[in-house]
Design a binder for these strands. Structure first.
Lengths: 136, 136
DNA sequence: CTTGACCTTTACGTTAACGTCAACTTAATC
DNA sequence: GATTAAGTTGACGTTAACGTAAAGGTCAAG
């Protein structure tokens, strides 16, 4: 069986996700990551790597680092205090609303792209047809 | 029948979309809008207003203004030159890929939110149950 | 005719998210 | 054990997307 590594250097992650180490350290500054240390060296666990994936997904959806921080907090289940749990449920709802709105935007954008492409195809087809009739 | 306006001032649009006039002028700087002028005054048509909506949708999806410019260009059907049309079809495909990727990210994020919320609900339910049994 | 509500351009300021040195330490390799 | 590759902490630089303030033009209402 192929061994999958259990810990990573900052360079490992930078290579894997095509980031600079500067970027990964910046995310730590912003409290998005908290790797262990071996001396001064940063050691990233599988969980850290997963968090980084979450960060990058947030970026692809256009969220800023503060927003991403908020959402990542949701993944750390709270200590079981009622007030905390209720606040969490509220934040989850808010996050879901944002996502559903984005989903709607994407649906409409895709529809419009289809229409535009359709018109393009028709025009291209016409060009080809006319070219052929002229050749003959 | 209620009349819907056919042209808009910069203040009209700012109010409607909750933007500053500075922002709208900035979009013009970046060639995302090209309103008519009455003297020095900017006059926005319905088409301009639609473009602004497209810009804001792009923003909600996390695109920068250059990317938004590219996509908006797709809405201006080209002059019918074959080379142009083909390039356009290619850009449409690229844009669609981006959107589909985002759609996938959102799907996964929503699934994870569901799981997190489920765990929260269970914990809250447990809290309530224990509170009740203690009260009796 | 002046007041107030809008509009204009010009220009400098601000913040997030890094990039880019520099100066140094630690780890791996020949 | 010297070299080289990778990691560390500052600290200053950069760019996009506006904010903000200055200085002024236009036009209807009182």
């Amino acid at each position: 069986m192929s061994e999958s590594p259990t810990e990573f250097s900052i360079g490992d992650l930078a290579r894997e996700f095509d980031l600079t180490t500067r970027t990964i350290r910046y995310y730590e500054d912003k409290l998005l990551l908290k790797p262990e240390r071996r001396g001064k060296q940063r050691i990233y666990s599988k969980a850290d790597r997963t968090r980084l994936k979450l960060i990058l997904r947030g970026k692809r959806l256009g969220w800023n680092l503060d927003e991403i921080f908020e959402v990542i907090q949701l993944y750390n289940s709270p200590d079981g205090e009622k007030r905390q749990l209720e606040l969490m449920v509220k934040k989850i709802g808010h996050s879901r609303t944002t996502l559903l709105d984005q989903q709607e935007d994407i649906k409409m954008a895709l529809q419009e792209l289809d229409e535009i492409e359709e018109r393009c195809s028709v025009q291209l087809q016409q060009l080809i047809t006319h070219a052929n009739t002229q050749e003959v």
